[in-house]
Design a protein around this nucleic acid. Structure first.
Lengths: 335, 335
DNA sequence: ATGAAAGCGCTAACAC
DNA sequence: GTGTTAGCGCTTTCAT
């Protein structure tokens, strides 16, 4: 029987590197972070020691010691539609370019879950938090505000922000869409959406849409609100039910492109001619709508840019502010 | 002039809570984590103190002290196609359900960047890492292996894994597609893809595809490899160039659905009848292809499930293993 | 059941 | 230019 030498399986620490290089810990730290001063010779020895020891710095410890994290919290409602991945793409580019990392959390559009995730993310002491929307629970909002870190709320500017707000006005969208449809002489107007509790931004568009119609002396002929998340399926089924009740509608406004495409499929399947017999209007400007046989009329939102600008401001010392990035009405072939 | 009492702006710490509750730090810690024993009375006092102080635990400190993080590192090539968000959706559900958080990093398909991100992610001492693909730089692979944490490689099972591998065989995909096209009597076959350096999985499909053709005594009539990332645009342009050289092709295999849809658009725009005059075959089973005027023939991959199972195994103590989740050939209307 | 004390691995003064 | 020292906020023995 032989004794095998005890091999330390734990990862190498700064202390190990310092010892191997024959210098003090702080010197090794300075070299590794390229901060402060040190001699050429020491520099080489430390780097060599780090390499041979396969040293990977422990940022957990570094963050604790310096009280300054390189983590950014990202809180979004869902990953099911491409809307938020598009946003993420923008944020991530900016975040990684700055040497930070994103910690993401998905609320599934549930307020209670959001509150819990805010606390959870905050417990990582991120350098900042980027969160979708302006509506949070009182406690959630209080935690964000009291956290002392930069907060960026994205995607919606209709309401009271905490620090920095980047997005566009969903009220304006609802109004613009209504005005457009009215201008195009549509009068028998329907709406297909999902419960506003699930998507507050869609609720704002809906509200402004109705208000604008009312100002023109019109009102929604009928609407179909489906519970749960929006999808191609719910859009398709929703339109079918709506038309069963009101076959004479001349246009339908959908809460988003997914549902609108679903509606479009219903029309294709039922032989309803678009846009002659029925016009369709969506929201978001997703690929799926742009690439449909007849490109979907919709509102194109600057999701990637919102994410990117949001992240950049998050990492900046800019003063609190609201940035309206606007949107674009795309007139496709469904209206 | 009055003195305002100095308000500590810093966040409350465990020490603050303990003091406010009139107990020791360790006792407060036990109560807050519901671990160990304490009296009913102490329990209430600590919780009340925590609430009134708006205490948010500092997991950075907690992790450092307990050497056990609640962070999972996720390393993926891109956020541009919906393939990886789909994956993410699966992982995130499992990760959050277990009370963990995902730290994501995007390599943009660059090996050097991946290596750098591996180190960067590792510096957060995650409980595990989920990474796309089996190919990494030597140093990247070494760092992963030596990290001591669970590593899950997803999306590809053709090669040597480090710990746990979840995905499907891209070689098998290439072979199955070739066999299918041959069975359908296609003989004048072309390929449109992007540089294999950018998407190694696509390269494997391509290779197996050619090998299978060769075994049947056939070879690719022509191919068009575009540099850079794949997109609808590159697929469209690629097919156009390919057909200019070889107008007599009867089917084209694309590296993925994005490119295939681009090719489909080229056909629509140029009056090329699909599939009579030219067949098109993609890969991934994206919505965009499923919802095209003529549903795209493609390979449907179980991305969400791969992510979910991968994450579950990541958090488990399961032994190292390879899990083949397979794929499905979807015969659409473009072949 | 509870508290004191010793770190976790690092950074940031502050000496030298 | 370099080393020593004192924490960062928490968890974890180990007494009591």
């Amino acid at each position: 029987m032989t004794f095998s030498p005890r091999v330390p399986s734990r990862a190498a620490t700064l202390t190990d590197v310092a010892r191997a290089a024959g210098v003090g810990e702080s010197t090794a730290s300075r070299v590794l972070r390229n901060k402060g001063s040190f001699s050429e010779d020491v520099h080489d020895r430390v780097l060599k020691a780090a390499r041979t020891l396969n040293y990977v710095p422990n940022r957990i410890a570094g963050t604790l010691a310096s009280t300054g994290s390189q983590l950014i919290g990202i809180i979004i409602p869902t990953l099911t539609t491409s809307v938020f991945p598009d946003l993420l793409r923008g944020t991530n580019a900016a975040v990684e370019a700055a040497g930070f990392h994103s910690v993401i959390a998905v609320t599934e559009y549930e307020a209670a879950r959001e509150e819990q995730l805010i606390e959870s993310i905050l417990s990582w002491r991120p350098a900042g938090i980027l969160i979708a929307g302006l509506e949070h629970t009182d406690r959630g909002r209080a935690m964000l505000k009291d956290s002392g870190v930069r907060i960026v709320e994205v995607g919606d500017i209709d309401g009271q922000g905490i620090d920095i707000v980047v997005g566009f006005s969903n009220y304006a969208v609802g109004r613009v869409v209504a005005e457009y449809l009215l201008k195009r002489k549509y009068r028998r107007i329907g709406y297909v959406g999902n419960e506003a509790t699930h998507d507050l931004r869609a609720g704002k568009r809906y509200k402004a849409f109705k208000t604008t119609l009312a100002a023109a002396g019109l009102q929604l002929m009928d609407e179909e609100i489906t519970p749960g998340l929006s999808s191609i399926q719910t859009g398709r089924d929703g339109l079918a039910r709506l038309l069963k009740r009101e076959p004479d509608l001349d246009v339908v406004y959908f809460a988003n492109d997914d549902m609108a495409i679903g509606g479009y499929f219903h029309c294709l399947a039922s032989g309803i001619s678009v846009p002659d017999r029925l016009g369709l209007f969506g929201h978001n400007g997703l690929d799926i709508g742009r690439l449909a046989p007849q490109p979907l009329s919709t509102i194109r939102t600057p999701r990637g840019i919102v994410g990117e600008i949001g992240a950049k401001l998050l990492l900046s010392r800019a003063p609190s502010q609201v940035i309206d990035l606007g949107f674009e009405l795309f007139e496709g072939m469904t209206t």
